Amino acid sequence: MKIEISEIANLPSRFGTFKIQSFKEGIKEHLVIFKEPLGEIPLVRVHSECLTGDSIGSLKCDCRDQLEFALSTIEKNGGMVIYLRQEGRNIGLLNKVNAYALQDKGFNTIEANHQLGFLDDERTYEMVEFILDYFKITKIKLLTNNPKKIESLKNIDIVERIPVIIPSNKFNAGYLKTKKEQMGHLL
């Protein structure tokens, strides 16, 4: 597949001043947010889009808190956030809202996905390897709790996993429990 790559632009934000670059894969436009120097073994957060959490501040998940933790950490230390357009574990916004409605009826996040005909997690990470290769990065310190991300990056040397531990709240405690107990997240 052909990947279109934007120019690099400056992005001043409430977390610091970063550089950004977009990678267009078909209809999906992914974003790399980075702070130089990247160093020989940069900090990297692979973050999947979560409109409800990242933009609206939903308390049903920990996505926004993880993203903010990553941006703050990278502002201090250098590194990058690879922001993948994979809303709702890659089931799309419409299906994510339908999954939320099922969760309101008592299904957990995995059961809701199954009710809609999806796997536990439909995300893929090939684009991450493409982006890291583009930046000539072969070794990283990965900010993650998700073992699937670690396993999926076969061509990248992950020299350290840095946990992203976020306090739970009454709205996401069950969600985090499901991630830990059924998806193997390292919480």
Rank of each mutant, 00 (worst) to 15 (best):
N95C: 08
N95S: 06
N95M: 05
N95W: 09
N95T: 02
N95I: 10
N95H: 08
K96L: 06
K96N: 03
K96F: 07
K96M: 09
K96I: 03
K96E: 04
K96P: 01
V97T: 06
V97R: 00
V97A: 08
N98M: 09
N98T: 02
A99D: 06
A99R: 04
A99Y: 10
A99N: 03
A99G: 01
A99L: 01
Y100E: 09
A101D: 11
A101S: 07
A101Q: 09
A101K: 04
L102Q: 08
L102T: 02
Q103I: 09
Q103R: 06
Q103T: 13
Q103Y: 12
D104W: 11
D104N: 15
D104A: 15
D104F: 15
D104Y: 10
K105Y: 13
K105P: 00
K105G: 06
K105Q: 15
K105F: 13
K105W: 07
K105T: 10
K105R: 13
K105S: 15
G106Q: 06
G106R: 08
G106I: 00
F107D: 08
F107H: 12
F107E: 07
F107W: 05
N108H: 15
T109Q: 08
T109L: 04
T109H: 13
T109N: 11
T109Y: 11
T109G: 00
I110S: 06
I110Y: 09
I110D: 06
I110Q: 04
I110V: 14
I110R: 02
E111R: 14
E111V: 11
E111Y: 12
E111K: 15
E111A: 15
A112P: 07
A112W: 09
A112F: 02
N113E: 15
N113V: 08
N113A: 12
H114W: 11
H114N: 12
H114S: 10
H114C: 03
H114I: 15
H114M: 07
H114Q: 15
Q115V: 04
Q115I: 02
Q115C: 08
Q115T: 04
L116A: 06
L116R: 01
L116T: 00
L116P: 03
L116C: 09
L116E: 07
G117N: 06
G117T: 10
G117S: 09
G117D: 08
F118A: 14
F118D: 14
L119G: 09
L119H: 05
L119M: 04
L119Q: 12
D120G: 07
D120C: 07
D120E: 14
D120R: 04
D121E: 13
D121W: 08
D121H: 11
D121A: 06
E122H: 01
E122S: 04
E122Y: 02
E122M: 07
E122N: 05
E122I: 00
R123E: 01
R123I: 08
R123N: 12
R123S: 03
T124F: 00
T124C: 00
